[in-house]
């Protein structure tokens, strides 16, 4: 049946309707993708080798960037918080202020953003190239599930590595703050760590843990989905990689606010 063109007065509604359908359709495919990956994650056969490979790819290869950014974030925090606290004569609280900022907020968020930039983009690009060179199709026609071999191990690796990367970021950051506060600005070592023990509790650590765990799922979910659904050629891979990094970063910040509100 031939479709008659819409009257000009109805075209804006047509455009809004088309956009709405496209958004709902892509959200549906995004959700279905995650459900399929979860199904592959919890049903045998489990791809242990692929999982270990993804741990190496996402986690081990991100160690240097986490170490560097963690150290400098802690040093900047140490300096800025000290300069603020010293005005009120409260520099003794530098340790807990640095630790709480890192453990509850900056550690999970900055570690997730760094891993997204390094490993998330690489994950999307790798899967995108596998898609356009028909390697994913090759798995499918071998009657082997690409979700089981490629998506599920990445998401599971995200769940494991993001909390570990966050923990490393926190520890290195606290020592960065120590370097500036104690070794450079002359605060006593006992004050820095002693007050930290008093003010930082397990509930603060759990806030950071839950955040990092959820960021691990968000980043690997977005990046594998974008890699599986690239457009054509090198341009398609480049666009998917950019979209994956931007979307992951925005979702990290939005979800961080939501988690911060819930887990006060």
């Amino acid at each position: 049946m031939l479709e008659r063109p819409l009257a000009p007065a109805l075209r804006p509604f047509d455009a809004v309707g088309g956009w709405t359908i496209a958004v709902v359709d892509s959200l549906g495919r995004f959700g279905t993708f995650f459900a399929e990956a979860l199904a592959a994650l919890v049903t045998p056969p489990f791809k242990i080798r692929a999982f270990v490979d993804r741990i190496h790819f996402i986690g081990y290869n991100s160690l240097l960037i986490i170490f560097l950014t963690g150290a400098f974030t802690g040093m900047v925090l140490g300096l800025q918080i000290y300069l603020t606290l010293v005005r009120f004569g409260s520099e003794a609280f530098l340790g807990p202020a640095v630790a709480l900022s890192l453990i509850r907020e900056l550690g999970p968020v900055l570690a997730a953003l760094m891993v997204t930039g390094r490993a998330g983009s690489a994950l999307t690009a790798e899967l995108g190239i596998m898609r356009i060179t028909e390697q994913i199709d090759a798995l499918t026609v071998m009657a082997l599930s690409p979700m089981r071999y490629l998506a599920a191990p990445s998401i599971l690796a995200g769940l494991v590595t993001f909390p570990l990367m966050t923990a490393l970021f926190d520890v290195v950051g606290i020592f960065g703050g120590y370097l500036v506060g104690v070794k450079l600005l002359g605060l006593s070592e006992g004050t820095y760590f002693g007050e930290m023990q008093t003010f930082v509790g397990i509930d603060d650590i759990m806030v950071g843990f839950w955040k990092s765990l959820s960021f691990g799922v968000i980043v690997t979910w977005v990046c594998t989905y974008k890699g599986f659904n690239v457009g054509h050629g090198a341009e398609g891979v480049a666009r998917a990689t950019t979209q994956a990094v931007v979307l992951s970063s925005v979702l990290i910040l939005v979800w961080d606010y939501f988690m911060g509100s819930v887990l006060q």
Partner: peptide, 13 residues
């Protein structure tokens, strides 16, 4: 598909 073998255009290795 288990009864299939497929050689893709670019090899898809």
């Amino acid at each position: 598909r288990r009864t299939y073998g497929v050689v893709f255009q670019g090899g898809a290795l």
